[in-house]
Amino acid sequence: MKVAISSSGTDLGSNVDPRFGRCPYFIIYDTSNDNFEVVNNQGRQAMGGAGIQAAQLVIDSKADAVISGNIGPNSYHVFSSASIKVYSGVSGTIEEAINKLKKGELKETSSPDVSSHFGTGPNWNN
């Protein structure tokens, strides 16, 4: 299974980013062989629709699931249309998140947990 995780950094010790659409990186992790690749989230500075663009990136990476701190309504809508599993409300390191996923400790999210534009504004220092 391939899972896309919103990440604040480029290695497995980085934290799961609380923002989905505007996180700096995605770590695309393959649980079948424990390989991963790092993808720059180029849409993070988009004026609008960053979540949609990031969701498209996840679809294009062929991931079956996504892990993030928070997921907004637009990204959630794209994932449900694409039948990609969403695990939201996750914090800690990427490695911890993957271990939890493998042990079946993550619960699938059945609705968006933040409103649009959660990841924008002066509270995020980037």
Binding site: G43, A46, M47, G48, G49, A50, I52, Q53, A55, Q56, I59, V78, S81, A82, S83
Partner: peptide, 9 residues
């Protein structure tokens, strides 16, 4: 440019 379209399959 405005991310109004996403395509899944």
């Amino acid at each position: 440019h405005f991310n109004a379209v996403a395509v899944a399959g």
